[in-house]
């Protein structure tokens, strides 16, 4: 009962966020709303019992992407025009709107054949899930089944993902660090000129 109330309220709040993100023209406000959108979806994932997805959504969606989008705003706008507005769209909204509505209707139509939420007889629950549920504790000793699958049964897959993220982090550090060095050189030159 309360689960349903929380689900429906969170989903409507997320929908309000989405409409506001589309309608708003102030880019800074849009970034702020994106952060709220991610937080609410992460909360929704927690309520729906998908703690690992919620972790990812909160860390990537609410944490890192907010910072990255703000950094992009900071790099593309000078501080004087920080509250600069997005340009008004030059095309009519009817074609994209109809495409979105048709796609959404098809997706909703597709959900009619899906098994119910958390249905134990769904095909995806009958394939390898019973094996994991029975054997993961004696085989790996990890109490959480999702963690056991991610860290032990799919250990190499997770290692590959971590490698990708590590490489991306190094690349970001190189790019940002390089920029800082160039900037300080410019500042030094400016100071020399003034001196």
């Amino acid at each position: 009962m309360i689960d349903n109330i929380v689900d429906i309220t969170l989903l409507s709040l997320i929908a309000i966020h989405a409409v506001a993100i589309i309608r708003m023209r102030s880019l800074f406000a849009v970034v702020m709303l994106f952060s709220g959108f991610s937080f609410l979806s992460a909360g929704l994932f927690v309520v729906m019992d998908a703690a690992d997805v919620a972790f990812t959504e909160a860390a990537v969606g609410a944490g890192i992407s907010t910072v990255l989008m703000l950094a992009t705003l900071a790099l593309t706008y000078t501080p004087a025009e920080a509250d600069k507005e997005e340009k008004a769209p030059t095309h009519k909204p009817w074609l994209p709107l109809s495409v979105v509505f048709i796609t959404g209707a098809l997706l909703i139509y597709g959900t009619y054949n899906l098994p119910g939420f958390g249905d134990p007889n769904a095909p995806s629950q009958l394939h390898v899930a019973p094996y994991y549920l029975e054997k993961s504790m004696p085989e790996t000793g990890v109490p959480n089944v999702v963690t056991a699958v991610l860290a032990s049964y799919r250990g190499f897959d997770t290692l590959g993902e971590v490698t990708v993220i590590f490489t991306a982090g190094i690349a970001v550090l190189l790019i940002i660090g390089g920029r800082r060095r160039v900037k300080s050189k410019i500042e030094k030159n400016g100071g020399d000129r003034e001196a």
């Binding site: 952060s35 992460a42 703690a51 909160a58 944490g63 910072v67 703000l70 950094a71 900071a74 790099l75």
Partner: peptide
């Protein structure tokens, strides 16, 4: 999970305020 969310929320707000105050993040 709620504790981790607290940390992420804090980082986000600090980044936003840093950007507002000094105009960049670096």
């Amino acid at each position: 999970i709620a504790l981790v969310y607290t940390l992420i929320n804090f980082i986000g707000v600090v980044a936003v305020l840093k950007l507002i105050e000094q105009g960049n993040l670096y």
